[in-house]
Design a protein around this nucleic acid. Structure first.
Lengths: 247, 247
DNA sequence: CGATTTTTTGATTGGTATCAAACATGGTGG
DNA sequence: CCACCATGTTTGATACCAATCAAAAAATCG
């Protein structure tokens, strides 16, 4: 049975103030349920740029919601190969792959000074039993993560370098605008190498493609500052991914 | 609240007889819980080779456990591109990506005459509230699917053609042996083209790599009949994926 | 048994990786 | 604040792997 206590109220206030409330938990929760939800959240945690939120192999206890900042996740292998598996911004959830083995399945690193909400998994399970809407929502979030990785597979398996990069920029743009940021004018928080790793390309190729897009007049590149001048041209290049929006 | 009725008992018997019981639901369930579980399962369904179990975009109501046979799932895009996202054998779960939007996210097709158990999602949710162990197990299964797709991303993003094919064969071998089949002597249920789509390669490349492995003496290829003669050589080629076993 | 599909193998092309070098950037400490 | 160094980025030249194009052989299906 879920317990309501002081801490719950405090965290509720935090979430109330937090502009991400709806994003983070977009299900329609009744007022009372939101109060209960407070009890799920242990605390928020700050990380400096470059700090790990968790490492692959560490015991899994909680999932994390990005409150502010930007993260990357990556899987790594014995022989040094590794791959960025995702970038996560405000309101997005990290660590769902840890549930399976009670062990984190990837590394998660802050790409800028960031803040996360820690959601102990045991609390989430417990709360899910009391609040069906929360439980349903959580199932959806996990399913959405599966959808996201499936899209990525389509990209890695079928698309050429320029299409992958276009898809990457379009996706980033959508997610930023969904969260109230400018859709066509943003700062890349990750390096060319990290983009390359995510897209299955080398950093030189990423750089070349950015230059090409700029020469075409589709985007403007100033180091990490990107402006989409003709986003529809990028969109045209990746017709396929009209699938579910990554939330 | 979950209801126990006649149908539940019937299905329990089916599952009891079914050698996949432990695979399909490996969590340690108490006798009573197994009885309850019967109520979750609506019915089993037979499909002929080539039949679709569900199509992307269809309303999602249930997930499916493969009882016998073999399936592929694939995502497809407007412009005709499509990609096989997985192969599923006895005891494996299909359709988890449909929860997100109440809509199936991919096509699922039987690659041979097959039989599945239909698990209506609403029943699963309900039963999960009554049986915590079932709920925990279901969370794990979803998380495992995320892990599986992450591994695939590592493969698609980082590995060369021969490494991908080696990883594919090794993975298939592991899953077959986990289910009591021969590890090093099996029939491929899918075409070269389907393997290629799954691995992000063209069918000619798949065929060439199979020939190469055979010339090296690592495998024996007779059409769809594959024998692994020196599986350790394949294993060596894909050192990395000592990650969680795909279940 | 004939028609269609799948598979194998060869020749060539093309796209991305690799290697290399110049340049810019950002952080650190003097 | 500036000089410096480590790191990240751009661009070019070349190499290599897998795609493409093509054709023959084998298998599957009716």
């Amino acid at each position: 049975m879920i317990r309501l206590h002081k801490q719950g109220e405090i965290v509720q206030k935090l979430c109330e103030k937090c502009s991400l409330k709806i994003l983070c938990m977009p299900v329609m929760l009744k007022e009372r349920e939101l109060t209960d939800l407070g009890a799920v959240i242990r605390q928020s945690r700050r990380l400096r740029k470059g700090e790990y939120l968790f490492r692959a192999g560490e015991p899994f206890n909680a999932i994390f919601a990005v409150r502010t900042g930007f993260f990357k996740t990556m899987v790594n292998s014995q022989d040094g190969r590794d791959q960025v598996t995702g970038f996560f911004m405000s309101g997005e959830l990290l660590g769902l792959d840890g549930i399976c083995n009670n062990t984190h399945g990837c590394d998660a690193m802050a790409l800028e000074d960031s803040e996360v909400c820690e959601l102990p998994f045991a609390n989430l399970e417990e709360a899910g039993n009391v609040l069906p809407s929360l439980q349903t929502h959580f199932y959806r979030l996990m399913s959405q993560e599966i959808l996201r990785t499936q899209e990525l597979m389509l990209m890695l398996g079928n698309m050429r370098a320029e299409e992958r990069l276009a898809a990457f920029l379009v996706n980033l743009s959508h997610r930023l605008s969904f969260r109230g940021f400018a859709a066509n004018d943003f700062i890349l928080r990750m390096s060319r190498e990290e983009i390359g790793s995510y897209l299955g390309l080398k950093l030189e190729t990423v750089s070349r493609m950015l230059s090409r897009f700029q020469n075409e007049g589709w985007i403007k590149v100033e180091h990490k500052h990107i402006q989409l001048l003709q986003p529809w041209m990028l969109q045209k290049m990746v017709m396929q991914c009209q699938r579910a929006e990554v939330d």
